[in-house]
Design a protein around this nucleic acid. Structure first.
Lengths: 344, 344
DNA sequence: AAAGTTGTCGGAACCGCTTGCGGGGAAATT
DNA sequence: AATTTCCCCGCAAGCGGTTCCGACAACTTT
């Protein structure tokens, strides 16, 4: 309600002095600074962020941009979790985060057509998820905003990115099936080619398989839903009857695979061990609880927050690709014993 | 990049005229208006939202405020879904939404201590969830911002709210157990007293039970998690051995109840029918798939968006409490036949 | 032909804050 | 005592828009 002028009048100094005092700038005696601080508190003064932004041309706002279908509904809270980590950390530095979900048309039309990206409302963009087209990313970065990628990466560019260790995680999962449980015929259930995440996870699987001297057995389907996991598992079981374990590129497919096993009267994990990826929130409530690879979504958001603030404030301009480790979460679906009836 | 002045200079008119032309205000000839629009497009002009906000004292921004633990992680994407509905609809009116998650300390300290609520950054607040203290709500509303409640309500105030039909939904669920399946001894598993949502759902349960001439059998535990559902179900089964069905006030408790049944070698739904509430995203993946009451989170967000924009723009100042219907989603856990093995 | 209308546009103030520059007083130097 | 230095502080411009008010020209009216 009250403005800088009000505080200045109250104390009997100029607005300039008040501004300097409240912003910890030199040129104000400790005594008047004290009086100003008291007056500001008494008058319940808060600097108007709009006016401040107008002069500083900084809004202390970053946009969390994602595909509309990737933010709920009908999804696991994967991106919301990232956003939460982002918000939590940004708040410490007095930054705010806006949610912007974009449709396919908007993503193909590009950042120039989106007022929210053009009108100086934000200092930076966190582009989350692999469905932001590369062209969109590049043109956004060219427009002067600080840009970061999360759960996505553009190689051979100057765009910093935070990603999970898809390759390492899937290698660890596959290794676990081989070493802890002695499986020799292990299938991989994956989604369509071209999706970077699927590719990396496939690479991890293959490297573990080859390192053990086994043969990769990969089934690709077009999507990565429960339904496609059901379908992929059936294809794999038909193609490789001796298969005793399956690695799915995400938890939804893994759950579909467990359903497929059930429909063939195969028991999980006795007849078919299953591991997933992502550690979505209901993985531990699956029947049996799903062994999977955890993706540290909160940490991804937190890290993205630090990195983009550094970028905005010009502290680090060098690009970086940060890979966060993805740990295997062992539950019953891979054969490791765990009481399935009681809650954990 | 280019400013109003640039466009004005380009066309050879004053900034005032450009402003009028671009804002569809009278006082500009159709011919110059045309030239201005062309120039703006050519120069890729976008009005600087900060400058505009400074004069209009409108930011076209609303804050989605929720308890930090209610936004993921470790939760169903209930609030993210609401936020998505909000964002989707606000975007149509060129409004933006910021995420603000607050800790317990911040909630008890009140809105006055939060710069983001005081510095003119936002036009309105959407306060989501029952854990925003009434005092916080009232003081926020008193501070001049437009305030709305979602999934929460404050009776006998002027604060508009959007809530789900907790009472009707729970009545419908209970009725279904009675009428479609003939259950006569039905327990209610509920959380701590005082939580409005639990109370309303309890009321719905009781009214259905009484209308059928049966006796309510209520078990209260302190929380509403899977673990407490497990505990509550065990208590209920001990207290009412003849119980054949249980209504849980949310899906987490319902899943816990199914676990408890399993641990006693009771089959769901044959020995114990279970229904939940909320239709969280993994309810349909439970074993067996959980019958539950859907809460239209997306619609709640969308409606909240319309209502708060109306409030901000001063079109409706009369308070309202909007109750969205919650429909029963019938799945296998209540005894209605449904293939449990295949994906749906 | 003089007066009154109407439509189109520019000047200028203003929103609330930041910051470069210069003024003035007290302290330090000569 | 005169000059320099340094520290505080105020003045004023400017950030990029919006909007009130008045000017001016062209066109009606009497």
């Amino acid at each position: 309600m009250s403005s800088l002028q009000d505080v200045a009048a109250f104390v009997g100094v100029s607005a300039a002095t008040v501004s300097r005092a409240l912003n910890d700038k030199p040129g104000v005696s400790t005594e008047t600074r004290q009086r100003i601080l008291e007056a500001a508190r008494e008058l319940r003064y808060w600097p108007n962020s709009t006016a401040r932004s107008l002069t500083t041309s900084r809004t202390r706002t970053v946009l969390f941009v994602t595909h509309r279908h990737k933010f709920p509904p009908s999804e696991d809270p994967f991106y919301p979790q990232i956003m939460r980590g982002l918000e939590e950390t940004l708040a410490r530095d007095d930054y705010n985060v806006m949610l912007v979900t974009l449709t396919d048309e908007q993503l193909t039309a590009g950042p120039e057509a989106l007022p929210v990206l053009q009108d100086g409302r934000a200092d930076g963009l966190v582009l989350a998820g692999p469905d932001i087209p590369p062209g969109f990313v590049l043109r956004a970065a060219a427009s002067g905003l600080s840009v970061m990628l999360v759960d996505n990466a553009l190689r051979e560019t100057q765009i910093p990115a935070v990603v999970a260790d898809n390759e390492g995680g899937c290698r660890a999962a596959t290794d676990h099936l081989i070493e802890a449980h002695g499986h020799r015929v292990i299938g991989l259930l994956r989604g369509a080619e071209g999706w970077a995440t699927s590719e990396e996870r496939t690479t991890g699987y293959c490297s573990a398989i080859r390192a053990a001297g086994l043969t990769p057995r990969v089934v690709s389907v077009s999507e990565t839903t429960i339904e496609s996991g059901f379908e992929a598992a059936n294809q794999a079981l038909d193609a490789y009857p001796e298969m005793t374990a399956a690695v799915a590129v995400n938890d939804a497919m893994a759950i579909g695979a467990m359903r497929a096993a059930g429909s063939r009267n195969l028991r999980v994990p006795a007849d078919l061990a299953v591991v997933g990826f992502d550690n979505i929130s209901w993985a531990k409530f699956a029947e049996p609880p799903l062994t999977t690879v955890n993706v540290p979504t909160l940490e991804m958001g937190r890290l993205a927050a630090r990195l983009i603030v550094d970028r905005i404030e010009g502290e680090f301009t060098v690009a970086s690709r940060t890979i966060l480790t993805s740990d295997l979460v062992v539950r019953a679906s891979c054969g490791c014993e765990k009481a399935a009836g009681a809650p954990d």
